[in-house]
Design a protein around this nucleic acid. Structure first.
Length: 417
RNA sequence: GUGAGUGUAGCUCAAUUAGGUCAGAGCACCUGACUGUGGCUCAGGAUGUUGGGGGUUCGAGUCCCCUCACUCACCCCA
């Protein structure tokens, strides 16, 4: 029985999975930079009110999923359940000049029962285009997502898009929907009956088959868009087509957070189980104003890192050895030289390691093998007398001798550093 | 928060139809054969309060109850 175990819903990223995670993050970073985004880092926790204000009191995140706590001065703080609110808060607080394109990689926390692709601590990769009003921006973010997933060789991806209108037309639609739902209340599942009053739009994407067949006749947001919203959506669609991005319009796609308007989109994978959304986003033209800033249009996208990793072809078990040189010494007399050599290798940018723990050559070679090093450099008494090092290729077993001064220059091309 | 399934060495799994040499194997790890050469082979070795607690029984990894953890699904969403 282990004495200490990780808290429920958290996970350890150990090698080689940690490498996989790094690959995903780096891919995201590179792409974000290419699209003109700069990184923003905000605190892991914020004042609780920030999230209540942004996500909406009706959202499940606020009602039952936040990791909230009182600090020692009785301030109510909350571990961030998503990335956007902190970013907006920081942008306003630091008076950043808009428009601005920002990206973030951050852990997020939600208290919910863990399952495949859902954790209590999870990582979100997000981009926010603040101060950009154009529908073309929305399409560009979708393009960003598609490109990101394709760079990671993720197949089976579907892009879902929809528009949920603006303040005005959404209100009209809401009334129509409410009338419809109240009329058909009995035919809906208990969950949906609840949702009618709390957040009626969410009834649309209920998973219950019964509800879905019934909802075929329900009014959908797109039918009630005002002309501006309609134009906006048309441009998004045209832009996607022009960029040759396949998409599906899903009239029932409603995002869970209250702050979205007009464009909403989601990346759905067919190899993920129940939690099949790899990421999603949309336009949120009211949030900044809502949080005390000037009226500012904005559009964003957030991707789930763990789900991305789940959808990747397979954990690329790195075949072959690590780009690492293991320095081996044969007796205490050579230890000093070995330590200095290791240090010089490192100065030259060559990953190098040695073991101080055993003077046994055999043991050291075995450790080099365990560490999966590509090469062993042998610093032996014989070699030192002649001014050479032994260089052993641990894959092939071949061993050659190199004049001491040549070692680094010969090693560099072998390790591609 | 609700439901179902699973819990045996670090890992993957065994342990006779209804409880009785049942606490094992393979991989991994350590030591040696190999006094300056890893991987291969051979010979040894260490490791488990069978998730935890209680009960039934002469006797429980095996049956019952509670609990914890994990997994999947609902819910929610990344």
């Amino acid at each position: 029985m282990l004495r200490h175990t990780r808290p429920k819903g958290t996970q350890d990223f150990i090698p080689p999975v940690s490498q996989q995670k790094l690959l995903v993050e780096n891919t995201f970073r590179d792409l974000a930079v290419i699209y003109g985004f700069q990184e923003i880092v905000t605190p892991t926790f914020e004042h609780t009110e920030l999230f209540i204000k942004s996500s909406g009191t009706g959202s499940d995140i606020v009602i039952k999923e936040m990791y909230s706590f009182q600090d020692r001065s009785q301030r109510s703080l909350t571990l961030k359940p998503e990335g956007t609110p902190g970013v907006i808060r920081a942008v306003l607080e630091n008076r950043l000049v808009l428009p601005a394109r920002l990206y973030y990689i951050t852990p997020c926390f939600r208290y919910s029962r863990p399952q495949k692709g859902r954790y209590r601590e999870f990582y979100q990769l997000g981009i926010e285009a603040l101060g950009e009003a154009s529908a073309r921006t929305d399409a560009e973010l979708i393009h960003f997502g598609v490109r990101f997933f394709s760079r990671l060789n993720i197949a089976g991806l579907t892009v879902m898009v929809n528009s949920i209108g603006c303040r005005t037309c959404r209100q009209d639609y809401r009334e129509k929907l409410l009338t419809f739902l109240r009329l058909n209340r009995e035919a809906l599942c208990p969950d949906c009956q609840q949702r009618i009053e709390v957040n009626p739009l969410r009834v649309l994407d209920c998973k219950n088959d019964h509800c879905q067949t019934m909802l075929q006749k329900a009014p959908v947001p797109r039918e009630y868009l005002c002309s501006d919203c309609q134009t906006h959506f048309t441009i998004v669609i045209n832009e996607l087509t022009a960029r040759q991005l396949p998409y599906r319009i899903d009239d029932h796609l409603v995002r869970g957070l209250d702050y979205y308007n007009r464009t909403t989109f989601e990346f759905v994978s067919d190899k993920l189980g129940a939690q099949n959304s790899l990421g999603g986003g949309g336009r949120y033209d009211y949030l900044i104003e809502e949080l005390g800033g000037p009226p500012t249009p904005a559009s964003g996208l957030a991707i789930g890192l763990e789900r991305t990793m789940l959808a990747m072809p397979q954990l690329e078990v790195p075949t072959g050895r690590r780009q690492l040189v293991f320095v081996i010494w044969t007796s205490e007399n050579e230890l000093r030289t070995a330590v200095d050599l290791t240090d010089r290798l490192r100065e030259a940018g060559i990953p190098a390691q040695l073991s101080f723990d055993s003077p046994k050559l055999k043991r050291q070679l075995h450790l080099a093998d365990l560490a999966d090093a590509a090469f062993a450099v042998i610093v032996g008494e014989e070699e030192l007398k002649r001014g050479v090092y032994g260089l052993k290729n641990l894959t092939t077993g071949e061993q050659i001798e190199l004049p001491a001064p040549e070692l680094i220059s010969r090693l560099k091309p072998l390790l591609a550093v």
